[in-house]
């Protein structure tokens, strides 16, 4: 039995330690906002926060997490920076099929928490771990810059 801290709740799960966090979230806890895209950390669709850092949950064995806090897309509602990001996403409308977007949003939130006014290059460096087959990169970048402006104010 493992004890996890997910979205500010302490949860006990009976799963093998080598099971990636992604499948614990999806198939054991029913948190479906974290997506499976590649399983090898290439596409970013499964991104969650581990103690505030954006990490890929598809290749993170759940046994390595320990007491660190896990936040998924379902757990960001009360976060003011997350709210700015979601507002900017509504304004700039990058979302199409939407499958990669929760992952991109999790990385965008952690980026703005570390760096409240990232340059184009810094945004690109952070976000280029994500694949979006709808090719929404330009609007994602605009949304992040817009949200950063809001954060500054």
């Amino acid at each position: 039995m493992l004890t996890l801290n997910i979205n500010h709740k302490i949860i006990k799960v009976d799963v093998p330690e080598d099971m990636p966090l992604l499948w614990v979230l999806r198939d054991v806890l029913g948190l479906m906002g974290t997506k499976y895209g590649c399983g090898i950390g290439e596409c970013g669709a499964c991104t969650v926060h581990l103690d505030g850092e954006a990490v890929r949950s598809c290749n993170l064995p759940v046994g390595l997490i320990g007491e660190r806090s896990v936040i998924t897309i379902e757990g960001i509602a009360d976060d003011p920076i997350a709210q700015k990001i979601l507002d900017a996403w509504i304004t700039h409308q990058p979302t199409q099929c939407g499958y990669c977007q929760p992952g991109q949003i999790m990385t965008a939130i952690s980026l703005l928490k570390k760096n409240e006014n990232p340059s184009n290059e810094e945004i690109e460096r952070e976000m280029s771990g994500h694949i979006c087959r709808c090719g929404t990169y330009q609007r994602v970048k605009e949304a992040i810059k817009d949200a950063a402006g809001e954060v500054e104010e």
Partner: peptide, 21 residues
Amino acid sequence: QPRLDTMEKINGQAIYGIDIK
């Protein structure tokens, strides 16, 4: 007009085939 499906797709609530329970 803004897309009607944006909010549910960015807050993780949208259900795709792979999310069916």
